[in-house]
Amino acid sequence: ASDIVSNISNIGTAIPTLRCYVLDDNQQLLPVGVSGELYVGGDGVSRGYLNRDELTSARFIPNPFKSGDRLYRSGDEVRLLSNGELEYLGRKDFQVKIRGYRI
């Protein structure tokens, strides 16, 4: 309830099989409190988009922090809070979701 009152959209932490990174435009880690793009890595990350090679190469990149892993560029702007949770700040690409579809 305190998140609603303070108008914070706290999305929590990654599930155990995933890793979340907050990176800048050069894919460098950002410190606590600084906003950047959310990248997700780990066992739950897909191999890419079916029959969409160009989109796959734009959104799925090699993980610079763990060899053999890859990261998914979410397009979500977040910041890491001091308690280790992530706060959602919005979309970097201005997409919206309508009935489950991003446009």
Rank of each mutant, 00 (worst) to 15 (best):
L80S: 03
N26R: 09
V40A: 07
T13W: 01
S2C: 11
F65P: 06
L23I: 10
G41F: 04
L86Y: 12
E54Q: 14
V34G: 05
S35C: 08
D69L: 04
V78A: 01
G12F: 00
G90C: 03
N63V: 12
V78M: 03
Y21R: 01
G100N: 02
T13A: 11
S74Q: 05
R73A: 14
D3F: 07
S67L: 15
I103N: 09
R47N: 14
S35K: 08
N7C: 12
C20H: 13
P16S: 11
E85Y: 00
S6M: 12
R47V: 13
L55M: 14
K66Q: 14
D53S: 11
A14D: 04
G44N: 04
Y72E: 14
N51Q: 14
P16R: 09
N83C: 08
G12A: 02
L71S: 12
D93N: 12
V32Q: 01
G33E: 00
N26A: 10
A58K: 14
C20D: 07
L38D: 03
Y88Q: 01
S82N: 13
L50D: 11
E85S: 14
Y21W: 07
D25Q: 07
Y101I: 13
E87K: 01
S57E: 13
V34T: 12
E54I: 13
G48C: 02
L38G: 06
A1D: 09
R91V: 05
A1Y: 05
Y49V: 05
R73K: 15
D93E: 09
S57D: 10
G75F: 03
Q28D: 07
Q28E: 13
V5M: 05
R79F: 09
E54N: 15
A1L: 11
D24G: 09
D76V: 05
